[in-house]
């Protein structure tokens, strides 16, 4: 190897090694562990087979839980996007200073992790330090119950967690929209609602789809908000995986992770098939 080749070969080697450790090895380990059976005492692999998957699909319980989680996260994605698009449009129309302030505010709130977000909302929804206590003090409601754990609490907090990220992702695309397109629509007599649904939404189809995919991926793999704010019957699939990891039933937890990954890939493929195609241009 001569001196000319050295600087080029070194980064390639570094990246190949890195990709093997952090990208390919995890997927390989995921697959091999999911089809392994280990000795509960020593943790050594005894045999390979589909036992873990047979246990997962012994009845419909986990399949129903995956379907529930996919449905829940899809609903969270739809609600988040329905709020994010008009709110981002409102921010995009602001003057420079106000818009900059909003971007910093959004970035600051999205810097809160799942754990901190869940904790902050537990306080806000508690009777001692939050809304139920304030409303009770004002005589608007009676009783001394906190509003969590509950399904609405979990749902709202997951939307709260996703909203700033969705808005930050949408903002560049909305800023790039051609203002003449909207002005011409108004000149042609379109109403504001017609402009929103017939001009803005179709123009933003690509960015909305990409943001929806990222919002979906961000939420489907999380478990903290679901576990902290929801009742056990509301918990998402990732909670089961985390619990089996905690109790050292690793192969079964890995098999569940593998099933979740397959379900997510199927969802993405279906979403891409339905929404990912470019609309047929008509003249």
């Amino acid at each position: 190897m001569n001196k000319q080749q050295l600087p080029i070969a070194a980064p390639h080697l570094l990246l190949v090694l890195y990709c093997i450790i952090v990208s390919f090895a995890p997927l390989l380990f995921l697959f091999t562990t999911s089809v392994s059976t280990t000795d509960p005492l020593t943790g050594q692999v005894i045999s390979y087979g589909l036992n873990n998957f047979q246990e997962v699909f012994y009845d419909t319980y986990y399949a129903v839980q995956i379907a529930y989680t996919v449905g829940l996260v899809s609903a969270i994605t739809v609600v988040t996007l329905s709020m994010a698009v008009p709110l981002t449009l409102a921010i995009a129309k602001l003057k420079n200073v106000a818009r900059s302030a909003w971007v910093v505010m959004l970035l600051a709130s999205l810097a809160l992790s799942e754990v901190l977000t869940a904790f902050a909302w537990q306080l806000l929804l508690s009777h001692s330090s939050g809304i139920p206590g304030w409303l009770s003090y004002l005589g608007i409601i009676s009783g001394d119950k906190s509003w969590w754990p509950s399904f609405p609490a979990m749902f709202v907090v997951m939307v709260y967690f996703s909203l700033p990220i969705a808005m930050i992702l949408l903002l560049p695309a909305i800023r790039r929209l051609d203002p003449f397109l909207i002005e011409s629509a108004y000149t042609m007599g379109f109403s504001k609602i017609a402009v929103f649904f017939l001009i803005l939404i179709p123009s933003l189809r690509g960015p909305i789809f990409q943001t929806a995919i990222l919002t979906f991926l961000l939420n489907i793999g999380g478990f903290v908000i679901s576990q902290q704010l929801g009742k056990p019957s509301d918990w998402m699939f990732a909670v089961f995986i985390a619990d089996f990891m905690r109790t050292f039933n690793v192969p079964f937890a890995v098999a569940l992770s593998f099933c979740l990954l397959i379900a997510v890939l199927l969802c993405l493929a279906v979403a891409n098939l339905i929404f990912g195609r470019k609309p047929v241009e008509t003249r």
């Binding site: 952090v22 090895a25 995890p26 995921l30 793999g221 478990f223 990732a238 990891m245 992770s257 997510v264």
Partner: peptide
Amino acid sequence: LPGIVFAVSISLV
């Protein structure tokens, strides 16, 4: 990758 899936798989590595 979904967060929990990557977390489980990198813990195995």
